[in-house]
Amino acid sequence: MEWTLEVVPVPVTDIDKAKRFYAEQVGFTVDHDTRQGETRIVQLTPPGSGCSIVIGTVVTMEPGSLRGVQLVVPDIEAARARLLEGGVDAGRVHHFEESGPVDGPGGRWNSFVNFSDPDGNQWVVQESPADR
């Protein structure tokens, strides 16, 4: 039996502002923006991903409480450049050593960039090895 992760809820205060951030600044595709009465659901998908995020009135977590959801990319420098071009305040490329985080790329699966959305939800971008 396969179990696939399809949707991650992201808690936000302003649905339209978050939709613009994820679509226009980060580069996610807007799959749908559905309204029915007081209910609104916006689903967005990162390029190439089989998993989407959902923002809207159905998300009941505290805005800004999401921590550490990872996006995996083949080129961490290109991903950071894309975020910066979109106006996202992306952190420096870093990796981890025994002493903690260190600036610069690391070895296999050990290069990261962090960013947050306007509500403070924290994301991690990780570089995958070329031979993945």
Rank of each mutant, 00 (worst) to 15 (best):
S49F: 02
L44W: 07
V72M: 08
D14H: 10
Q25I: 14
V10A: 05
F21V: 13
R35V: 06
I53L: 03
V42P: 00
P11H: 13
L71G: 09
G56S: 12
P46Q: 03
T29P: 00
Y22T: 01
V42T: 06
R67L: 10
K19Q: 11
R80S: 09
L44P: 02
A78D: 14
V58Y: 09
V30T: 09
F28C: 03
F21P: 05
I15M: 03
R80C: 11
R20C: 10
G68F: 11
E24C: 14
L66C: 14
S49H: 06
P46V: 02
T57A: 07
T13I: 10
D31E: 15
R40S: 11
T29F: 00
Q70V: 06
G56P: 02
Q43T: 02
Q43K: 04
I53F: 00
Q36H: 12
G56E: 05
T60V: 09
G68Q: 08
E62Q: 15
G68W: 06
P47G: 05
T60C: 07
Q36L: 06
S65L: 07
V10C: 05
T34K: 01
P74W: 06
P11K: 14
D16A: 15
G27A: 14
D33Q: 13
L71D: 04
R40I: 12
G27M: 12
F21R: 06
Q25H: 15
T45H: 00
C51L: 12
Y22C: 00
P63T: 08
R20H: 11
K19D: 02
I55P: 03
C51S: 15
T57V: 14
I41N: 04
K19F: 01
I15P: 02
P11R: 06
